[in-house]
Design a protein around this nucleic acid. Structure first.
Lengths: 185, 185
DNA sequence: GGCTACATGTAAGCGGTTACATGATTTA
DNA sequence: TAAATCATGTAACCGCTTACATGTAGCC
């Protein structure tokens, strides 16, 4: 792939940032679909600089602390925009430990299987609440050309995905309990 | 993680298989939530054997071709079932290149963004059709204790996810085209 | 003075992919 | 007899995580 490169260029295309600030952005804004630790970001910035995609100026905080403020170059912008507009084919499904468990869950007792499903449902409901709260910050749909609109679309997708995941787990539970271990009327 | 181990043990818990057959199963049955190439499977089988989780007998195909038929041991079963029943916390969201593009898509022309969304929608609709065909093999819901029921639940989740993904992309397109570049009534 | 946040890097190791490498068996 | 499938491995490399390593600045 090599997409970390474009995640960084995209953020630097919004504004100049330090490596530290980039790491914070990954945690705060991109965590729904990307992640990167500082130990990956710093080397990537170095190679991006060697490739002429970014430049940096050294700023001083306090009296001596140096920090590198990175700025995207014209070459970087060109490369980024070229990636951005190109459609890609669907990648292989990401590995999913829970689905792997569910696939083999006929080996479990009915109670254990239901426990697994209920536990999972609880976690997804919690995540859904959190996402809905984020979405409700937008009382109206932002204008299409704004960065907020891009953010809104991604958020919408996350909310819809969690809603469906919860609905799926509820349906699985209904099926498991419907043909439950004992006392079904 | 180390979940490849449990994927293999789970398959060997169903029946004895060769490394080659395991690779086929990953492609055919597990591809919706897991994948593994033979170059990863063979070394893993080796270490699983060293750990006493699996045994093998050498079978002869034709006159000379040797193949190793792997069988799960009692220790392997115990380890597998212990993993199987344990609930895990939700992992970090998997990296998603499309959502990354969408997040930065305000840099694109309205036409390019719509193109990206339409292309993606087309691919997900195709995948949905494929999954629905698989699901429709089950004219009735299999009995809960069967392996088919486990399979059915996973398939159901895949269909629901693709349906929602399509609905999401359609909604994004409606929003983009609603405030479109020209000629909206 | 002590804690938290700011700030930047390197090293070891893991899970995974792609490519390399070899050879037998079956089927058209 | 040629191609597809069966069958088993190894090596190089990549993306990423965890841990190591260091030091400053701001705040209570």
């Amino acid at each position: 792939m090599g997409n970390l490169k474009y995640a960084i260029l995209g953020l630097l295309n919004q504004q100049s940032r330090t490596g530290y600030e980039l790491a914070k952005q990954f945690e705060m804004s991109l965590s729904e679909f990307w992640s990167a630790k500082h130990s990956q970001i710093y080397p990537e910035l170095k190679s991006l600089h060697e490739a002429g995609m970014v430049e940096y100026t050294i700023e001083i905080t306090g009296t001596v602390l140096e920090k590198k403020l990175y700025t995207i170059t014209e070459a970087g912008k060109k490369d980024f925009l070229q990636w951005l507009e190109k459609p890609h084919t669907l990648p292989a499904m990401p590995k999913d430990e829970f689905r792997l468990q569910l696939f083999f869950s006929n080996c479990l007792s009915p109670a254990s299987r239901i426990n697994l499903l209920q536990n999972r449902l609880q976690q997804h409901r919690k995540r859904l609440l959190h996402l809905e709260k984020n979405r409700d910050v937008y009382s109206v749909v932002p204008a299409v050309q704004t960065p907020e609109f891009s953010d809104y679309m991604v958020l919408l997708g996350a909310v819809m995905r969690e809603e469906t995941t919860c609905a799926w787990l509820e349906q699985c539970l209904a099926l498991c309990e419907g043909q439950g271990p004992k006392g079904n009327p």
